[in-house]
Write a protein that binds this DNA or RNA. Structure first.
Lengths: 113, 113
DNA sequence: GTAAGTAGTTACCTGAAGGTAATCAAAATA
DNA sequence: TATTTTGATTACCTTCAGGTAACTACTTAC
């Protein structure tokens, strides 16, 4: 296998791994919600509107396991749980911006006309 | 609903639409293969290795419908079919680069140590 | 005429993703 | 004491993504 083919396969592997982390219906919405500041379960749920508590809970756990978000329990009264982006989560910002930019372009080209 | 919330929801919608186009196990590999030049069915299949002809055929059709790639039939003998990126497909380059960059960082943070 | 290569298609099956609805436990409020 | 709020969990069901294996149609080479 030559150099070029090796680079190609490497790119495929790495981007595929990256995609797995943000894939699915709810992960990007959750991450985007948290780029606007730390939020509680109910606040995220309100931001996303059509997500069920089951899916939100499940996806928050998955993102936490991938070290994208952090769950903090403040045991003040009333006990509150706050979710926030980790540095790894914050490092997604440029990627998210490009995804958004391309999404806008795509929308214009395909849906828009 | 205030300005900030509106921007948030807009971002969610647009990035989600963008994600749908590249989502799945095989679309990014196919697109990446074609960034290295136009290719025939068999060449893409050889580049990706573990993809089945069914999945390749199916995903090529989906990408063609989204105007990301173009199918060209040359009826020289032997009849050959060549797939290439459209301008819309080529416009994904920056996004793919960011996905790759973040993937490298993620790999280092999570898998690497 | 038989084998091999190119570009697929078809039928069938499995597991994961995601949805719905009901329930739960702790604490605050009425 | 009863009700509401917050942050979930559980059981059940449906749909879809993806895999396997076999087959096809056309053409060229042997």
């Amino acid at each position: 296998m030559n150099q070029k083919e090796e680079v190609c396969k490497q790119k495929m592997r790495v981007t595929r791994d990256a995609l797995v982390v943000i894939q699915g219906k709810w992960r990007l919405p959750i991450i985007i919600a948290l780029t606007f500041g730390d939020k509680r379960f109910g606040e995220i749920k309100k931001d996303i509107m059509d997500i069920s508590p089951k899916m939100l809970s499940q996806e928050l756990k998955a993102l936490e396991m991938n070290k994208i978000i952090k769950r903090t329990l403040y045991d003040s009264m009333p006990v509150s749980v706050v979710y926030s982006l980790t540095p790894l989560g914050e490092s997604m910002q440029k990627m998210l911006d490009e995804l958004l930019d391309w999404g806008i372009y795509f929308r214009k080209e395909i849906i828009g006309k």
